[in-house]
Computed example of a mutant assay.
Amino acid sequence: MMFKFAHNNINVLDLNKSLEFYEKALGLKEVRRMVSDSGDFILVYLGDGVSQHQLELTWLRDWDRPYNLGDNEFHLAFVTDDYENAYKMHKEMGCICYENPAMGIYFINDPDGYWIEIIPNK
């Protein structure tokens, strides 16, 4: 028996704002979308164009407040082949929320407050 990653899911308050952020900050593009017949939810799957792993964004029509992300350290992580320019872009976007120069990494926040780790290609 074997298992492989398919996707990770996060819930988002403003789907368009999140789609714009993930494309600008990380180059992720929509690869498929599912809209419920009743219109009460939309699922959008984003891909990096390289791996098969996807990020699923869930938008709920009736959700009207920011998500409580809790106190855990859940985060996504991305490796970049151009760490210096990625850092510069994210700094200009104002989305860097934590830096750890000793480890050579930093984190950015998405519009809903999810943390995303940026790692240089080693």
Rank of each mutant, 00 (worst) to 15 (best):
H90F: 04
D37N: 13
I105A: 00
Y106K: 08
T80E: 09
L69V: 04
S18A: 15
Y87S: 04
F3W: 10
D64M: 08
T80P: 05
C97Y: 01
P111Y: 04
L46M: 07
Y98P: 00
E23G: 02
T80V: 14
G47A: 06
Q54M: 14
P66Q: 09
H75Q: 12
L15N: 05
G70C: 10
D14R: 14
I108D: 03
F5Q: 14
L76S: 10
Y87W: 12
E30V: 11
I116T: 08
E92D: 15
E92F: 02
A25E: 07
N109I: 00
W63C: 02
E92I: 05
D14F: 09
E56N: 05
Y45G: 02
G49P: 08
D48R: 01
S51G: 08
K4G: 00
M1R: 13
D48C: 07
W115H: 06
K24A: 11
Y45C: 01
E117W: 02
K88Q: 14
P111T: 05
R32F: 07
L57T: 10
Y22G: 00
Q52H: 12
K122G: 07
M89P: 00
D62N: 15
C95E: 02
D64R: 14
Y114A: 01
L76N: 08
N68Q: 13
L13I: 04
N109M: 03
Y106C: 08
A25Q: 08
L15M: 15
I10T: 09
Y87N: 03
E92Q: 15
